[in-house]
Amino acid sequence: MARNWWKVLSALLVLTTLVIGLKAPLAPGIAEVSPERLAYGVNSVTVTGYNTRFAEGEEDLQVWLSNGTQLICPYELSVVNDRELRATFSIPEKTEDAFFDLYVNNSKDGTVMLESAFMQKDLTVVASLPENERNPSCVRKPAVTEAAEFNFPNQSILNETIRNLFFHVPAWFTMMLLMGFSLAYSILYLRRSDMAYDAKASDAATVGLVFAAAGLATGSVWARFTWGAWWVSDPRLNGAALGVLVYLAYFVLKSSVNDSEKAAALGAVYNIFAFVMMMLFIMVLPRMTDSLHPGVGGNPAFSQYDLDDNMRMIFYPAVIGWMGIGVWIMQLMNRTSALKRAKILREYA
């Protein structure tokens, strides 16, 4: 037990992050507005919320638009149900920004906002409004929520798929860790010529490939929902595909040689050569072109803006848990392959 504590820990981490990651709700948010353009004069808009409680928090409900330095409040506001409300705004002729941000506040949901919710239509956009045309702030002191339940940020476009962070990213991290193990065992094989190291290197690569497949699958689903296609030609994605190809080629190379010691040496050399070349290109290549993928080509990684404390609280344990599970599977494979080798030796003895 003393030596296996990390296996228990990993399993528990994976299990808890799986359950919380999938079950905890998203924070309230604004799913959509209609119409999406505001013209001069009276505009009636419908706001559709997600996980919101408009009806429950109706008594202190406030809705306002933000445009440059100006705040615009509706002169008519009606709640249809928890998910839907109607507001009527009077839009002035001159605005400071082409886009209006929408805010909804009540004591149940807190403040919910949709950035650039509306676009202007035939309005005059000026740099800043003259002093006499500005209207005084119409927003009362916003209501604060009573301690909200544990939830994840609700971001437009990402929406519910934000949970994929707990599965997609750990899968790739685990794959990289396992490929690192594979590389280390290949180096050890070349130094010591012990077949056990060769088996360990190829086991690590096998498990790594499984996690790569998981990373590709989760990434593909995520890309479909956020970028609109199962696969986009993107340096990070193509790099990942190449990485998978390299390890498939490694297995083809090993299986195409009958002499197992020769296969081990060839495999080890290719593993090291390919790993170094891949790493070099993964560092260099994404800087060549822009990328949609976070963390590439001047695109900030998630941690900078989007990871709030609740996300972190699940994300980091998930990474550690999946890495532990990956190493555990690798060790199990090592042990079975060692047993298989011993059995073959016994049969020939």
């Binding site: 390299v246 083809v252 195409s256």
Partner: peptide, 18 residues
Amino acid sequence: TDNNLGLMAILGLPVILP
């Protein structure tokens, strides 16, 4: 290996592509 040219493409392409 026995399959020189075929394996050459399998091993070489992912490495050379970047």
